[in-house]
């Protein structure tokens, strides 16, 4: 389980940003998580609550926006949103495609804070 180390990196980045913004209290951190990021949402939420203790993020909540995988088919010039991560193929022609447009995200989007 590497979600704990992911949570540490997340909190390090967000804490620094909160200090620079002179945040009095951070209410929420919003994160974008792709289906191919290799990170498990529940494990990350669990780790977050442990890691934020005694940091500028203490008491904040983590909001996770989950993104499905989107692939591009060069033959059809079409993007397909995949229902899972087991079949990388075009919705229209059914041919396999390895061109990933979305799904690897592991990104902090924003901080909600009071000043």
């Amino acid at each position: 389980m590497h979600e704990l180390s992911i949570a540490h990196s997340l909190v390090e980045i967000a804490s620094e940003a909160a200090c620079q913004a002179n945040a009095k209290r951070v209410e929420a951190v919003t994160l974008r998580l792709g289906a191919l990021s290799g990170v498990v949402k529940d494990a990350l939420l669990f780790s977050y609550d442990i890691v934020i203790e005694d940091t500028p993020l203490a008491g904040s909540r983590l909001q996770i926006e989950e993104l499905p995988v989107v692939v591009y088919c060069p033959d059809c010039d079409v993007q397909s949103t995949l229902p899972g991560v087991q079949q990388f193929r075009c919705d229209r022609c059914g041919r396999p495609t390895a061109q990933i447009i979305q799904g690897k995200e592991l990104e902090i989007i924003s901080l909600e804070y009071t000043e």
């Binding site: 990196s9 994160l31 901080l111 909600e112 009071t114």
Partner: peptide, 17 residues
């Protein structure tokens, strides 16, 4: 006391990357 949103758009593994 007002609530603000700070846009970050930063990869968590940027340092590693």
């Amino acid at each position: 006391m007002s609530t603000r949103i700070l846009d970050l758009h930063q990869g968590i593994l940027d340092k590693n990357d």
